[in-house]
Design a protein around this nucleic acid. Structure first.
Lengths: 219, 219
DNA sequence: CGCCGTTCGCACCAATTGGTTACTTAAAGC
DNA sequence: GCTTTAAGTAACCAATTGGTGCGAACGGCG
């Protein structure tokens, strides 16, 4: 009797075709999942290898150590959110619309990329020792802050925003009111006896957050 | 030659006096420190025993397992912040002053109890499985929300606050703008190239947060 | 004083962990 | 085709981990 899945011609072969890049990507994807679910200490290298359908030896071949693998995963995650944010082209919008869009983008990003938050939490638990010397990340972040500052300044010039708003403070506030909601959704659900992730709750919270930020920014 | 510290008569004796309560307390204190520094998975039972100057066997005797020890530590931490908050007697203050005091209290609590934040983060990493069934905590939290709601309602009646403010949303916002600042201070310092914990930065952020909340609450 | 439960300490275990040695095999270059 | 380089595998290891078995000793009670 032939195997039923004939439409997968020798799919999942015993000896996979050699493809270093694909293997690296699978490892990175599996590592992101494992690290975000279990933290840096809780993550198991064997689990990552299994999930990536790669041999454990390959992980050490490509990424040297568990710690370094975490560092790479984290850097990619940071670069991703900054890249997507840059692609919003906020500077082409009126300041108020730009900030509303930015608040919504940050919110949506957390929803679509829940791993990001737990990865950042893990990095802070170990005092950011992995990206302490990451000049690329610092440069990208610097540009990011400058873009937000330009929007705030433009808004002030147009008379819709308060003058002298600090982009760092504003950005911390925007990130925090979304970040906290998601990172603490489990304890929050217990304490406040609410489902934090119901569509209604999500919609209500985003509206609340947008309102909070507009009240903070506008004259 | 006699030992110099005569004022400590046989302090740190080889065979410590038997005191179950004191031993439990030392274990809990050491556990809080270890869990908050290394997370649930990263924490080492041997380290806790060493730090507590107790035998590892005692930890399992009094607390059954590492997981249960974490649960007890976490519950105590939650009860502590709620107890201190209740002792503020916010209801005796005018609504606006009450909320300003509450924002400052939350902020100060995070500064004085940095372990609280990392413990909560650890609990959320494992989806709050330890305090999922903690009726005591749920009851305390319920009263806490009611107190804040009473203040918001009173403020609305007096015409200083907007009507129909949701105490849960407001409280999440107040907690978040402080919590995020501290939990992400390490990655934040790298990304924004600032010292998040300098006295000037702390003062500025508290002022910013108080302003943010007043703009959110007031008419 | 002597009993006995509680408090404590040592040595130990089975299981798991991150990481490695030694080898095989596919594919790119000539 | 043949060689060389790199991709991939399996078995293994030393160290560490959460957790225990068991005996010792302190101290309250009768």
């Amino acid at each position: 009797m032939t195997p039923p899945e004939k439409n997968q011609p020798s799919d999942l072969p015993k000896h996979r075709v050699r493809d270093a890049e694909a293997t690296k990507l699978r490892i990175l994807e599996a590592a992101k999942k494992e690290f975000s679910q279990n933290g840096l200490e809780g993550a198991r290298v064997d689990s990552i290898a299994l999930e990536a359908r790669a041999n454990k030896r390959m992980i050490y071949h490509y990424f040297e150590s568990k710690e370094n693998l975490f560092k790479v995963v984290l850097e990619i995650a940071y670069l991703d959110i900054r890249t997507q944010e840059a692609n919003l082209n906020l500077e082409k919008l009126p300041p108020k619309e730009a900030m509303i869009t930015f608040v919504r983008f940050t919110w949506d990003y957390y929803i679509k990329n829940p791993e990001f938050i737990t990865l950042v939490n893990s990095e802070n638990l170990c005092q950011a020792r992995h990206l302490r010397d990451s000049p690329l990340l610092q440069e990208v972040s610097q540009k990011f802050v400058s873009r937000i500052q330009a929007i705030l300044d433009q808004g002030a010039r147009e008379g819709v925003f308060r003058p002298d708003l600090d982009a760092v403070q504003v950005n911390i506030t925007i990130a925090s009111i979304g970040y906290y909601y998601f990172t603490n959704r489990y304890t929050g659900s217990v304490i406040f006896n609410r489902d934090f992730l119901s569509p209604a709750a999500l919609k209500e919270r985003l509206a609340f957050n947008t309102d909070t930020i507009l009240r903070l920014l506008c004259l």
